[in-house]
Nucleic acid binder design. Structure first.
Lengths: 153, 153
DNA sequence: TTAGGTGCAAATTGTTTGCATCGCC
DNA sequence: GGCGATGCAAACAATTTGCACCTAA
């Protein structure tokens, strides 16, 4: 992963303290699917004073630059994650809020086929699977660390 | 399709004038993917005075009763359609806003398989494909009737 | 008659914007 | 020094809610 400085410059964005802080928050493994409010809250907890408006602005800029990807899970607000090389979709546990990423070539292939059949060029897509843990023991609901992965639903 | 009266009673909802009007709007073939504001606007155009708050309330009740299904296309607001017996997904043309419904058993099957592999019971899912018309001629962008199918994106 | 439904206006929530100030290059 | 970035507060858009009034059962 390139340093945040380099990444920002490459995106044509001036290297500023709020941008570095926000990017570093997004890079933390515990913060893979966070909303703008989440980012703001996490910064506050770190003692970093960044305006909420700046968080929204920077997230939009990062999205435009392709650094992060926006998702619309159920529940209205936008959720962001670092853009990965390979496309993946999401499985969300409605019990514990855990988000699992997966890739499925067969589904991807069918999507292209369907778009083709309707004479459309596929530009992007969103696939979210919502489920419940079959075995409560394996559910992160009671886990300490679960909070950090949770999506507000 | 049962009469709106019967449908409402079956859902445990008192049969009132706003509810009948809203349900009838939703049943019109031109209004398959409409937002709350769309429903409100369509009612105004028909000369039926129904409060916007009531439209939102009734749409939520219909969703709870399973009469309609809510979708979150890109762009924030919720879009509703009558619940159909068979599940289907959506292909949205970003050029003309047209919404195409499709069913794909292979994709459905893969989804179950994936949820299973992660030990989750699949409760529901959402799949939206976004594309652009390959041939402008077949695109409804310039079509008169297109308005009625359009989704605000 | 009465529990539930409606309309209006005000409150919420998530997000964007105007503007004066501030900080990289 | 200048132009872009930031913070704050105000503006917005979509949706929900409190409350007095109305209406179907």
């Amino acid at each position: 992963m390139p340093s945040s400085d380099v990444q920002l410059k490459k995106a044509g964005l001036k290297v500023t303290s709020p941008r570095i802080k926000i990017l570093d928050v997004l890079k933390h493994p515990n913060n893979q699917h966070v909303s703008a409010e989440d980012v703001y809250r996490l910064l506050m907890e770190l003692g970093d004073e960044v305006g909420l408006a700046t968080v929204y602005r920077v997230l939009n800029q990062f999205e435009d630059a392709g650094i992060i990807t926006r998702h619309h899970f159920e529940g209205g607000r936008s959720v962001f994650e670092l853009t990965t090389k390979d496309h993946h979709d999401h499985l969300v546990c409605l019990t514990c809020g855990r988000v699992i990423e997966f890739e499925d070539p067969i589904i991807e292939q069918q999507q292209l086929k369907i778009a083709n059949e309707h004479n459309l060029k596929l530009t992007n897509h969103s696939l979210y699977l919502y489920g419940e843990c079959k075995e409560p023991e394996t559910c992160e609901y009671n886990s300490e660390s679960a909070d950090h992965h949770r999506v507000g639903i």
